[in-house]
Design a protein around this nucleic acid. Structure first.
Length: 194
DNA sequence: GCGCAGATCCGCT
DNA sequence: GCGGATCTGCGCG
């Protein structure tokens, strides 16, 4: 599968979010190749988005990478889990796209082990779950999505994309209702509906 | 140095 | 439905 071109990330954040669906995340893990197809994402629109870590241009050690060039990897810890984002938008505007779910494609045995022998549907249907299944950790903070060992490749065209409000941001005022969540319609690996 | 909150997950009720 | 797990970094003092 062909590595994505760096110019792919230079497009409006909401466009990029939709186009990430159907692409593949590849991790050349030391146990073997781990691959997932992106089936659900959420866009975070930087300074104007109350739900974003970078709301009001809040610039800290943690959010710093969001101000960088699009195509960088933004990871952070949420309680016991690692979550992973694609930095988006023009450099200097702290936008990001959260990968919320993928469909297991390759390295199924390893994913099964990482996910503690749970049923396959539960391996990658959530942002904290997919990082565990793919063996992704904080070591990739600030790296590029276009370089090994963790990268995005060209993918497949999806027949239908759905749109709706984001999940898990209850304290964010009006931003709660923004339709910034995109997923492949009827894909069984999308995180649970609300 | 301390207290707190959080883009989550899982097990128990 | 609810709460605990358990990590990072912020903000205040």
């Amino acid at each position: 599968m062909k590595l994505i071109d760096a110019t792919f990330f230079h497009q409006p954040t909401l466009e990029l979010a939709k186009k990430l669906l159907g692409k593949y995340i590849v991790h050349e893990h030391n146990s073997g190749l781990l691959v997932g197809k992106i089936v659900e994402v959420e866009a975070y629109m930087g300074a104007e988005d109350k739900a974003a870590h970078s709301f009001g241009n809040r610039r800290t050690k943690r959010t710093e990478v969001m101000f960088g060039e699009p195509g960088l990897i933004y990871t952070y810890q949420m309680h016991t889990h690692t979550l992973i984002n694609v930095v988006a938008g023009v450099e200097g505007t702290p936008n990001a796209i959260l990968i919320r779910a993928v469909e297991p494609i390759e390295g199924l045995e390893q994913m099964k082990e990482f996910r503690n022998d749970l049923p396959m549907k539960q391996w990658t249907n959530g942002p904290g779950k997919l990082t565990k299944a793919l063996g992704i950790t904080m070591e990739y903070y600030g790296k590029k999505w276009t370089e090994k060992p963790l990268y995005i490749t060209e993918g497949v065209e999806l027949p239908s994309i759905s749109t709706g409000p984001r999940i898990g941001i209850d304290n964010s005022g009006d931003a709660v209702h923004y339709p910034y969540r995109f997923w492949e319609t009827d894909n069984p690996y999308v995180s649970k509906m609300r």
